[in-house]
């Protein structure tokens, strides 16, 4: 999976969950930068990511993420592990 594919997928999930078609994610973005990205919506985003990419996050992993870049890296790592 290439970075553009990964980001396209994440973009679509964020847009759907937050109901905002203007969202374009960049690696340095945090919850502060995206309107509506609160703790409840974060759960929805995580659940949708798990469904779409066929991965499962651990409880602790979800808490350590600082920005979109780290989230994307974690997804990339999980997808790769799942394919091994």
């Amino acid at each position: 999976m290439t970075d553009p594919e990964l980001y396209a997928g994440l973009n679509e999930i964020f847009r759907q969950v937050l109901d905002d078609d203007t969202i374009t994610l960049t690696p340095s973005m945090t919850a502060e930068d995206v309107e509506g990205w609160d703790s409840m919506n974060h759960i929805f985003i995580v659940v949708e990511i798990e469904k779409r990419f066929g991965v499962k996050f651990q409880a602790a992993e979800m808490e350590e993420l600082k920005n979109v870049g780290e989230l994307a890296a974690l997804v990339r790592e999980k997808v790769a592990a799942a394919r091994r």
């Binding site: 703790s39 409840m40 759960i43 929805f44 659940v47 996050f57 651990q58 409880a59 979800m62 808490e63």
Partner: peptide
């Protein structure tokens, strides 16, 4: 995991 994190007993 969602119970611990968000106190959601029913999965979204």
């Amino acid at each position: 995991a969602l119970w611990h994190r968000a106190k959601q007993e029913v999965h979204p």
